[in-house]
């Protein structure tokens, strides 16, 4: 499929073929199916769309999904930075194991994570046994959602911050040292601002992933409408009631948020490149 877009600077062959395959597969698998969501959601008109997408139950679900995702991403920013710092800057026994473990939420199926977390935090679980009698139940409520999303989002901040932190040159820190800054001042005034775009990117990625997360949450959440029902679950419920348009409407809202986050990520990327050339 020869392309009309000129390949300016390369004599390498295969441009047409590779680009053609790419665009074809992309359209078939991603673009066309996604457009179905938008079309279907409006199939009964704006009124029905708004009724479904902005119903009180849906609003409660968005609040939970996005709120928990934001909270979990924030927690991961703090601890993810800690883990990245320790991995990049220190040598200690078990460092390689720690580094390898970070990707576990990436590799582990979400349903497995879901039942494992529930096993831990339910009142019969190792941690739940202590927390529930103390009045701090985590499972079967919004706290459980935050816990699951913290698990899911953990690798994002660590993996985005690690390479940037590793690149902070010795010279920069030595310069701060010769200018009289204490270690703490150097961290807050020099190192932290330098890695801020990476932190923000990690936050956005963890947030986007957490907002749409399903498998790891539905076991530990409780799933009660208006209280502990996440937006993806609401979509599934609508589907089971054959309310395709309603499900699509809520999916639209989720997609729009996803795209907004993607757009934000793009801007962050450029901010980073511009300021730290």
């Amino acid at each position: 499929m020869p392309s009309a877009i000129p390949s300016r600077s390369s004599p390498l062959p295969g441009f047409g073929l590779s680009l053609g395959i790419t665009i074809l597969w992309l359209s078939l698998i991603v673009l066309i199916p996604l457009s179905a969501v938008f079309v279907k959601s409006l199939s009964h008109g704006w009124g029905a769309f708004l009724a479904a997408a902005a119903s009180p139950r849906a609003l409660a679900a968005y609040k939970l999904s996005f709120g928990a995702a934001a909270l979990a991403a924030a927690v991961n920013c703090i601890f993810g930075l800690l883990v990245a710092w320790v991995l990049v800057r220190y040598r200690f026994a078990g460092r390689r194991l720690l580094g390898a473990l970070i990707d576990l939420p990436f590799a582990l199926p979400t349903a497995v994570a879901g039942i494992a977390l529930t096993a831990l935090y339910a009142d019969t679980g190792v941690i739940g046994r202590i927390l529930v009698p103390a009045g701090l139940p985590i499972a079967y409520g919004p706290a459980g959602v935050v816990m699951a999303l913290t698990f899911i989002g953990l690798p994002f901040v660590v993996r985005t911050v690690e390479p940037v932190l590793a690149q902070v040159s010795n010279e920069i820190e030595e310069a701060a040292l010769t200018l009289g800054a204490s270690r703490l001042q150097t961290f807050f005034r020099v190192i932290l601002p330098t890695i801020a775009p990476a932190l923000a990117t990690g936050f956005a990625l963890a947030f986007a992933r957490g907002a749409g997360e399903y498998g790891s949450v539905i076991f530990i959440a409780g799933n009660m409408p208006f209280k502990s029902e996440i937006a993806p679950l609401l979509i599934v419920t609508q589907l089971e009631e054959y309310n395709y348009a309603g499900a699509a409407a809520i999916a639209c809202v989720m997609l729009l948020i996803s795209f907004a986050v993607l757009f934000l990520l793009n801007i962050l990327q450029r901010w980073q490149e511009r300021r730290f050339a």
């Binding site: 877009i5 790419t22 991603v30 999916a251 989720m254 997609l255």
Partner: peptide, 24 residues
């Protein structure tokens, strides 16, 4: 291996499924 207009958009589109909820 090539330069062309719309490259960054293409990369962004390829990454799209990452930001979409699995349920969606």
């Amino acid at each position: 291996k090539f330069d062309f207009r719309g490259k960054t958009s293409l990369v962004a589109l390829i990454e799209l499924p990452f930001s979409v909820s699995p349920v969606v």
